[in-house]
Design a protein around this nucleic acid. Structure first.
Lengths: 286, 286
DNA sequence: AAGTTAGCTTTAGAAAATCTAAGGGTAGAA
DNA sequence: TTCTACCCTTAGATTTTCTAAAGCTAACTT
């Protein structure tokens, strides 16, 4: 009477996870980046799930995807389920005697703000080993394996969030460049430096102080903020600085602020810590 | 500023599932059979998880495994999580326009009880396609992809359980064999037939009616109950019948019951249906 | 005390699942 | 129109997972 192997299978777990992420984020691309795979992989997983169930879960539109009624219904228990699994994951991390701290932050923050503080942070963390990841977007700490994130954004006021420092926009440049700048209008003759992922910065500042760039204003974009800052230090032009990022250079005197006007966008350097993060992390950074 | 791929990974999902099953069932072997893989696969998955977490989750003993404190703690959110995932799985099955009914039952029930009823059941199910799986042990309907199970056991009285028929033990044999049997004692000269997975049946019956087999009582074991029944029909010996399984043969007259004494062990043919099962299934079988 | 048994482990190799990369398509925006 | 931002598809590579078979160990058995 010995029978056993072939049993009907449930839906594939990884496909469920991909679907849940896509449903929660409303986009395959975003889900792919959360899961750190390509969008094609997510697309395939979701297709697998749809053909397993023989039902369409997303409507594909040219500008993105939209959940079907079935998809929306499905996402409810799934999100609940993966929340619980994430909780288990955190528990598991806490069991690990060799503790780790996975730190997610913007590349610019990593280089300009965090790096000088790293030695102190490392020694304060003791046995806990620290890994820093440069990300463009804050990860969802309840779904990813990051223990904390540090980003420039408007504080949402949620629990677990700590404002480490307030941010503001202010033009900065090398002292010799500052010497020829009396008023914002003088910027018309300078090269305006900016990070490409913060393209609006100069516009925001200009609008706030009532300064208009002319037609053929010279400017330069950088994919790394630190590179723009280096060019500013070298006297190549004027960088629209984020206070938290240029503070060190201002203090060191390699950069100066030629104008008084700071523009506060309401953003701040915000630290978020998951419950798998070491105790007292916020205190170490603030 | 484009950075992305390498992100810290959470614990592997399939390893979590294997661990959850093992924790719930208290055995790697049992978990393996629920997941329909080999025990080695479960062992590997759990080892993966343990080395991911750098913590021991099970204590290995010679007679089996026992959860560690960490393992027990971990199993709580995991079970909650996989419950929710199973709920999602059921929902997904209901979305499928091509409905299926995966039916789990004992090999003997499948052959002797279900098979004669199959045509009627199939036509009553209409579009729903039926698959029958022969299993030794009732599967956990909340965790496997079975929609219903039909086993011989003591009714637990839980919701979703329906008693289809009461069971009882009674010796049965071919009419020509019955002719030479007046009292239980006469069985000493007959070959006692039994299914090997119900080895105790004859002992239970014998004890209940106060009959003792002698030293060199002849007997024969079968790994398939239907085979034992076929031998009984052929006049080879006396089978200790389960009423629900021999009823058809008794009615057809190919077997008769030589004695009055039936022994009721409190077991019954119990149908259990998950919420992914078609409505009114119990009515079709009762 | 030796043999038996039940259950977990370990391996190598095989099979299956999953991913990436690259090329395509579509609709809204500029 | 041309861009741009998304999603899709496919082939082939990669990684994960599985099986099968042999091994271990401690508790029973005899």
């Amino acid at each position: 009477m010995s029978v056993s192997p072939p049993r009907p299978k449930g839906p594939p777990l990884n496909a469920l996870r991909a679907f849940e992420a896509a449903a929660r984020l409303g986009s395959f691309t975003a889900a792919a980046s959360e899961l750190s795979v390509t969008a094609g992989a997510v697309s395939q997983q979701i297709k697998t799930l749809e053909s397993w169930a023989n039902a369409r879960l997303f409507e594909r539109r040219a500008q993105g995807v939209v959940l079907t009624v079935e998809g929306r219904a499905l996402s409810v228990p799934l999100t609940r389920g993966f929340d619980a699994l994430a909780e288990a994951g955190n528990m598991l991390k806490r069991f690990n005697p060799k503790r780790v701290l996975n730190f997610a932050t913007l590349p610019s923050i990593a280089q300009l703000w965090l790096q000088p503080r790293l030695p102190a942070l490392r020694s304060a963390l003791g046995e806990i080993s620290l890994s820093v990841y440069a990300l463009e977007t804050p990860p969802d700490l309840t779904r990813t394996a990051f223990e904390c994130s540090l980003f420039l954004r408007e504080p949402s006021g949620q629990a677990g969030e700590v404002v480490v420092a307030d941010d503001a926009l202010l033009p900065v440049c090398a002292p010799e460049v500052a010497a020829r700048l009396q008023a914002p209008e003088d910027l018309r003759n300078e090269v305006l430096l900016q990070d490409e992922s913060w393209q609006e910065d100069w516009d925001v500042w200009a609008q706030a102080v009532g300064f208009e760039t002319h037609q053929n204003q010279q400017s330069a974009g950088y994919s790394l903020y630190a590179m723009a800052l280096a060019d500013a230090v070298a006297g190549y032009g004027v960088l629209l600085g984020h206070r938290v990022l240029v503070a060190a250079a201002l203090e060191a005197g390699t950069l100066v602020a030629p104008f008084e006007q700071e523009v506060d966008q309401g953003r701040a350097l915000v630290l978020e810590a998951s419950d798998a993060a070491p105790e007292g992390l916020a205190a170490l950074l603030a």
